[in-house]
Design a protein around this nucleic acid. Structure first.
Lengths: 170, 170
DNA sequence: AGCGTATAGTTTGACACCCAACTAAATACT
DNA sequence: AGTATTTAGTTGGGTGTCAAACTATACGCT
C-alpha cells in the first residue's frame, strides 16, 4: 500500500451529489495522489486543529498566535524578540506588532538590556500571567480533544514524527 | 511519559549559547508544555514541510498553493470553484484571484455552465497539464524526503491520523 | 581610534487568507 | 406570475505572515 493509487475518491469534504445528469462530478471529489501524500494531509490537519483552538481561545478574547508567544515568554523570562521569533518559527518582523500589542495591553513588559542596548528583554506582567493561565486551560482542553482523536497508543510516536519533520526539513 | 514535564529544554531551534554571564537564557529555549502538545508540533511540522516544498516548486516557477488546485482540477474536470475551494479547504473567495491568475497564464480554462449560468466549469489546458506534470514530479521528490524522515513503517498510520484530525475537528 | 561587518529590532511592500457584504442567477412558495 | 430564499462567485476590509531595506548599536580588526 503505497504505490497503488486506485481511485482515491472520498466523501469527506467534496460535496454531496446534486446529480443533474452525470454532471461531471457526481457525488464526491477525486483527490488523486493528494489523498496519499503527507504534505497535503499535514496541511489539512494543521488547519483543522488551528481552527478548533481558535474557537476555544476566542471565548476568552485571545488569538491562538498569542498563546505560544506568551508561553515562551513565561518559560524564558527576559528572552529577546529575536530568540522568541526563532523559537516560535516566525520571522522577527512578524513579532513587532504582536509584542507591541501585548505591551500596550499590559500583558508583557519590555526593557532595554544594559549590556546591549539594541535588544529588549521580555517578561510577563502579573496580568499576562493570569491571561496565560486561562489560555493554558483552553489549550489543555484542546489537547484532550486531539488526544481523543489520535488515541493514547499512537500519541507519543505521532509527536515524535512531527518533531522530526520540523527538525529535518527546517 | 506523558504527564511528566521535567524541563523540556531543547536545542532544536532555540539558539546556541552566547553565554555572557548567565544572561537569562544560556543556551536553549524552554518550550514548556508546548514541547509535548500536538497543536504546536503540528504547526511546526506543517510549516517546515510547506517551506521545503516551496523551495522545490519555485525551481519551476510555481507556488505550492497552485499545486493542489491544479491537481484537483485535473482529477475533477469541470469542477466548480465552490467545490474546488471546499475540497481544497480554503474559502471560495480565496480562490477568485488564484483562478484568475491561472486562467490569465493559460493553465486553466473556465466556461460558464449552460444549465446554471452562475457556476463556472474549470478544466486544465494542455499547458496546464504540462505544468502539473512538472509540479507532480516536484511533489514526488518532496514526498520521498518526507517518507525518509517518517519511515516506511509508520507512514500509513501517520497519514491516517492526520486525516482523522482533519475530519473530526473540521 | 577608525572603518567595516554583524546584530536587534522596525518599517515597508507584497501576499494569502478569512469573513461579511454584495450581485446575479436559480429555485421554492403561494 | 411574483416574491422570498438559496446559491455561485466577486468585492472589500482586516489579519498574519514573509522578505528586503533600514536604523542603531555592538564588535572586530588593523
Amino acid at each position: 500500500m503505497h504505490g497503488t493509487n486506485g481511485s482515491s475518491r472520498t466523501n469527506g469534504v467534496g460535496g454531496r451529489r446534486r446529480g443533474r445528469n452525470g454532471e461531471a462530478i457526481g457525488l464526491s471529489v477525486n483527490f488523486g495522489p493528494l489523498a496519499h501524500w503527507v504534505g497535503f494531509n499535514l496541511r489539512m490537519a494543521q488547519e483543522a486543529a488551528f481552527q478548533a483552538f481558535s474557537l476555544l481561545s476566542q471565548e476568552i478574547g485571545e488569538s491562538p498566535g498569542r498563546f505560544a508567544t506568551l508561553t515562551l515568554i513565561a518559560r524564558n523570562p527576559g528572552i529577546s524578540q529575536t530568540e522568541l521569533s526563532l523559537a516560535n518559527g516566525r520571522d522577527k518582523s512578524s513579532l513587532t506588532p504582536v509584542v507591541e500589542d501585548l505591551v500596550k495591553r499590559g500583558l508583557v513588559e519590555r526593557k532595554r538590556m544594559d549590556s546591549d542596548r539594541r535588544t529588549y528583554r521580555l517578561n510577563l506582567t502579573p496580568s499576562g500571567k493570569r491571561v496565560l493561565t486561562m489560555l493554558t486551560r483552553c489549550a489543555r482542553r484542546h489537547e484532550r480533544n486531539l488526544d481523543r482523536v489520535i488515541g493514547e497508543r499512537d500519541r507519543k510516536r505521532f509527536i515524535q514524527i512531527l518533531k522530526k519533520i520540523a527538525a529535518e526539513l527546517g
